[in-house]
């Protein structure tokens, strides 16, 4: 054995000092990390405070009154008309149309992926969904205007379908939300233990019966959470409606007419040169705050449901 330069300390003769050391570096780093963790709280405070502050200015304007907001169907803040219904109905329409597409398709794809598809098919389809989910929404906006609208017009006639319409925006929004609902639903379905499926098969259930009557009910709360997140996403979606749904508040329930959603309105108003503290400027903060609270509520509900769902299977 080669002569080693290592002098092994006679450990029992080594001074023994176990006292706590002040490790300043560790403390500084921990402080910085805590700050980073806490930072997101500032974001929320920032949203509530900044949006709330400007929104308050909006609500305090002499022309503003709550009755007018609820009872009127005309939204023209700069001339003192604050009927929010046109924006709300347009948002509801695009959302309903989008969900009408995304829920059934999303369920179908998710059940297919989780219960039927072979591992090979799944390994091809999941990246396709990821690609679909990774495409920027403005591209979907282009698609709505340049593909869906012409398609609708050729099917229903140019005189029926306006160039800007909520149907086209809603349908494409459904495609946009499809991957989100699919992947959340599929997660929920795959979380259902295999023993449950085996129990069903063991009693002679067909694949469909096991899937629809055992697996889906067991995953129902997870699926509900997926749908709620989808709705929240649809309400907050902006660029598709900004491009394809129409540029002007319009109180209508005709999906082939143009109308402006809350988000579409904010984008159009702020796209021009927006003077600070003007009615329009303040109004987008009020609308933004409304949007924030609606989506926040939906997200919290969905998270609650999801948490309860996972508690069952963990």
């Amino acid at each position: 054995m080669a002569e080693s330069t290592i002098k092994w300390v006679e450990t029992d003769k080594r001074p023994l000092n176990l006292r706590r050391k002040l490790r300043v570096g560790e403390l500084v780093i921990q402080g910085l990390l805590f700050f980073s963790g806490f930072f997101s709280i500032f974001t929320t405070i920032g949203i509530v405070y900044e949006l709330g502050k400007e929104a308050l200015l909006f609500f305090q304007m002499p022309e503003f009154n709550l009755i007018g907001t609820i009872a009127s169907v005309e939204w023209k803040p700069h001339v003192g008309k604050f009927g929010i219904w046109p924006l709300v109905t347009a948002t509801m329409m695009t959302t309903v149309i989008a969900m009408a597409i995304a829920i059934p398709l999303g369920m179908g794809v998710a059940i297919y992926l989780s219960e039927y598809a072979s591992p090979k098919v799944r390994s091809i389809l999941k990246p396709v969904l990821e690609v679909l989910a990774g495409i920027p929404t403005i591209v979907y906006g282009y698609f709505a205007l340049m593909f869906m609208t012409p398609l609708l017009r050729s099917v229903f006639g140019n005189e029926v379908v306006q160039i800007y319409n909520t149907a086209s925006a809603g349908l494409v929004m459904g495609i946009l939300i499809l991957p989100l609902i699919t992947s959340m639903t599929e997660d929920a379905l795959s979380a259902v233990p295999r023993s449950l499926r085996e129990a069903a098969y063991g009693m002679g259930a067909t694949k469909l019966e096991a899937a629809l009557q055992v697996v889906v009910p067991a995953a129902l709360s997870g699926i509900a959470a997926a749908i709620i997140i989808g709705i929240s996403r649809a309400i907050g979606e902006t660029m598709i409606v900004a491009v394809a749904a129409g540029a002007g508040p319009n109180f209508t329930f005709n999906p082939f007419e143009g109308a402006e959603t809350i988000t579409g309105h904010i984008v159009r108003i702020s796209g021009g040169d927006l003077a600070y503290d003007s009615v329009d400027y303040n109004s987008i903060f009020a609308l933004g705050l409304l949007l924030f609270f609606i989506t926040l509520t939906l997200n919290i509900i969905s998270q609650r449901i999801v948490r309860r769902f996972w508690e069952v299977y963990e």
């Binding site: 974001t43 929320t44 949006l51 309400i235 902006t238 984008v267 924030f292």
Partner: peptide, 12 residues
């Protein structure tokens, strides 16, 4: 929750 806030709210 912040992950689910619409992007336009961040714009505002």
């Amino acid at each position: 929750n912040l992950a689910g806030v619409p992007s336009i709210v961040y714009g505002i």
